[in-house]
Amino acid sequence: MARYAMVIDTKRCVGCHACVITCYMENNVPEGFTRDWIVEVVEGEFPDLRSEIRTERCNHCENPPCVFVCPCGASYKDKDTGIVLVHHDKCSGCKACIAACPYDARFINPIGYADKCTFCDHRVKLGKTTACAQTCPTSAINFGNLDDPASKLHKLMNGRIVKTMKPEAGTGPNIFYLL
């Protein structure tokens, strides 16, 4: 099984929202909802301030609580890619997965099923990168297979401080942020 992951360079991200817009277009995201979003953090006391801009989405966890709690077997981890996906035709809209997700990455699609980032699995199957990674004008978003030793993700993380979101949740996120 491949282990698809994303490495996001917070020093490159300028918060332009291009990833958000391209996701709308690529995945036909319903109006008023979003599968990825920008977060800006400012920390410290003036004038000693530090800021971070990053793009967030489903972390496609190694240990996904949304998959464990799903009573209908609709949420699953794809055997070939490791991407966490939702079978729309199996979902009953019970919202257990939304309650279980520490990242609040899911939402209820107006049709009724649980919706979220798919790592553009339809593109990945064709050997392409995700739409957000392809669009990012500063190359802050990088997508690849962590199980591939030649993947650029390893090179990007080498020598940088790397963090994942809410590691204490024990979910094993597959989105890595470079500080």
Binding site: V69, G73, C91, S92, G93, K95, I111, G112
Partner: peptide, 26 residues
């Protein structure tokens, strides 16, 4: 009434997920 995809209510009974308390409950 709480389900947002009511037509799929039968999906609770087309599978059993031992890790899911909601599956046990149903």
């Amino acid at each position: 009434l709480d389900l947002s995809y009511k037509i799929h209510v039968f999906r609770f009974y087309t599978t059993f997920n031992p890790a899911s308390p909601m599956s046990w409950g149903s």
